[in-house]
Design a protein around this nucleic acid. Structure first.
Length: 566
RNA sequence: CGGGGCGUGGCGCAGCGGUAGCGCACCUGCUUUGGGAGCAGGGGGUCGUGGGUUCGAUUCCCGCCGCCCCGACCA
């Protein structure tokens, strides 16, 4: 491709509303263009990169046994009603009426349709297992798109779905996909970590995220560097440290004027927060729940959701708290029967806690569980944090920010059951297929690759996903001798199968060098009066300090070699 | 959805009661050519939008819309 013919311009300055590195660089380099919040167009360079990523994904999905299909973005709302997600999907489905006033949705994911597709090809256990995948547009009306391509509303996703006859098969499919994912990310130049995750609104059992550590990410993973345990913040478990053992003492009410928070209470008594039992009010499906957790821990809403077996929880409003009749600043589960009580298991790791007396301005000493209050649910609902002890070994957890580039789920039969995707087993019994689903955001992967591979001059793209492999710059291109040599080299590089962006513009050297750095193609070749005088063509890898001069005749081979080792 | 910020040529910004200017980019010519060149000439903006105040609004006031950031939420 001749740069002089390439559509799109590089920008010296990034748009003021671009904040993250990848957003700035991809915009400046002319890869993408914003249309609305979280909605982007891809320009020729960006589309080529995206296509490289797609190709890698396809190869690995095929290798893992997947078969590519394509499913519609516009779907009848009806099938979402069947799966029970029409009203519960978060963010809410984008919907419209077609000309016959039939309700339609823009698909945010494709479990419903793929399950229907699978039904038509699955009658006997002999038809299983199989894996279907597609690379298709999704629309999710996110409340807050951010960071350019990092979180968008419309995006291309590779989504794969496995169908197996039994648990063992499902686990094998899941494993094959996870292995494929590792290969995909490594081929794209990303050093990702696989972390245990909560399955969220997709539903199902096990799930894992692939996270690229990056400061611009919005995902938090907790990683133990000793034993390798890794889980995201929603899921991570940790070892709770017990309080020193003590004999249980008798309840004792005392006056605490003006004390409403755990910090103040602990300070008032001169004890650490771990000696207090904190009461937190949550609201879920029509009722207020009182969570009791040790004062040094925080409630993790995902864990709470799972403990309660509900889809949504939120902090209760002051009015809702008042409705329970308990004083917010000095509440506890002690003596309460009417409010649902969830107790975090940290409460079992101590005795004689300080807690509210359920009377304005008073607290209790020596509160003990289960002597003084009951638990409707006793579970781990505490959020892990940086530095917390690993529950598996003696190490401690480190919190790392990152970008979630992929997610794999074992779904089991949650969709196949509701949508009737079953088969007859070898004994003639009807059984639901066991499913897995696996997603990779293609555009997000590009953004992540830029976040992970850049310097202060621009992108430093891995060869596998760079839009072109060689940036051939003709300096002093107005010189006929230079132009002739540069043209020749352009053709011979292309003839040898390399993808070349040939900067044949009539621009000063600085512009070309800067654009070369900005676009971040893996190799730069320069033909100029100076290079010809010193022997031929300058070859420089992006990111390398040194320049190599090779003869024009050897330059194609030199370029190939330099690319091999980059 | 809560908090904050910003909307002026393609991009970055200034102007802030008398209907617009700078840098980059763009066009023409000449010069220049190893890290975003110089000179000269030129094209392009109903100042997000609706209303109000005023003789007069890009400028002041109110509403709305859009975009960005933090949080909530989420692949």
């Amino acid at each position: 491709m001749r740069f002089s013919k390439l559509f799109g311009k590089t920008l010296r300055e990034a748009p003021a509303d671009a904040e993250t590195v990848s957003h700035k660089l991809l915009t400046r380099a002319g890869f993408i263009q914003q249309v609305a919040a979280g909605i982007f167009s891809y320009l020729p360079l960006g589309w080529r990169s995206l296509d490289k990523i797609r190709r890698i994904v396809r190869e690995e999905m095929d290798r893992a046994g997947g078969q590519e299909v394509n499913m519609p973005v516009v779907q009848p709302r009806e099938i979402w009603e069947q799966s029970g997600r029409a009203d519960s999907f978060i963010p809410p489905l984008a919907q419209f009426l077609d000309r016959r006033e039939r309700p339609m949705v823009l698909a945010p994911t494709h479990e419903e349709v793929v399950t229907g597709m699978a039904k038509a090809g699955m009658f006997s256990y002999r038809d299983l297992p199989f894996i279907l995948y597609q690379i298709q547009t999704k629309f999710r009306d996110e409340p807050r798109p951010r960071g350019g391509l990092l979180r968008v509303r419309e995006f291309e996703m590779k989504d794969a779905y496995s169908f197996d006859a039994d648990e063992e098969g499902m686990n094998l499919s899941y494993q094959a996909m996870a292995d494929g994912y590792r290969r995909i990310f490594s081929r794209c130049g990303l050093n990702v970590i696989m972390v245990e995750a909560d399955s969220g609104p997709i539903g199902g059992r096990d799930s894992a995220e692939f996270v690229l550590p990056a400061k611009s990410g919005d995902d938090v993973a907790l990683v133990c560097e000793e034993c390798g345990y890794a889980a995201n913040a929603e899921k991570a478990v940790f070892r709770k440290t017990p309080n020193p053992p003590e004999r249980q003492a008798a309840l004792e009410k005392f006056s605490t004027p003006g004390i409403e928070t755990i910090q103040d209470l602990a300070a008032f008594e001169g004890v650490p927060r771990s000696r207090t039992a904190k009461a937190v009010f949550y609201y879920s499906s029509g009722q207020v729940t009182l969570i009791t957790i040790r004062g040094d821990y925080e409630v993790n809403e995902t864990k709470l959701r799972n403990a309660l077996g509900v889809e949504e929880v939120r902090l209760a409003t002051p009015e809702e708290v008042r409705g329970t009749g308990l004083p917010a600043g000095s509440a506890s589960a002690v003596g309460q029967q009417s409010v649902r009580s969830v107790v975090d298991d940290s409460i079992e790791l101590g005795s004689n806690f300080l807690a509210g007396a359920n009377e304005e301005g008073f607290h209790l000493r020596n509160v003990n569980f289960p002597r003084d209050f009951k638990a409707d649910v006793l579970a781990d609902v505490a959020e892990a944090g940086d530095g917390y002890p690993c529950f598996r070994c003696d190490g401690s957890l480190r919190a790392r920010r990152g970008i979630e580039v992929g997610h794999v789920f074992k779904l089991g039969d949650v969709y196949s059951d509701k949508l009737g995707a079953g088969f007859l087993d070898d004994a003639g019994n009807h059984r639901s297929a066991l499913m897995g689903c696996y997603g990779i955001g293609i555009g997000r992967l590009l953004a992540a690759a830029v976040e992970a591979n850049h310097d202060d001059r621009g992108m430093v793209l891995p060869r596998a996903i760079a839009p072109y492999e060689v940036y051939l710059a003709g300096i002093n291109i107005e010189d006929d001798g230079v132009r002739t040599k540069a043209d020749e080299l352009y053709h011979s590089l292309r003839d040898s199968g390399l993808e070349v962006l040939y900067d044949d513009r009539d621009e000063p050297p600085g512009v070309k060098f800067n654009d070369a750095d900005l676009l971040g193609l893996p190799l730069r070749a320069v033909v100029s009066r100076r290079s010809l005088k010193s022997g031929g063509v300058e070859i420089k890898r992006r990111g390398a300090q040194s320049v190599e001069v090779v003869s024009v005749d050897c330059s194609v081979e030199a370029a190939r070699q330099a690319l091999e080792t980059s």
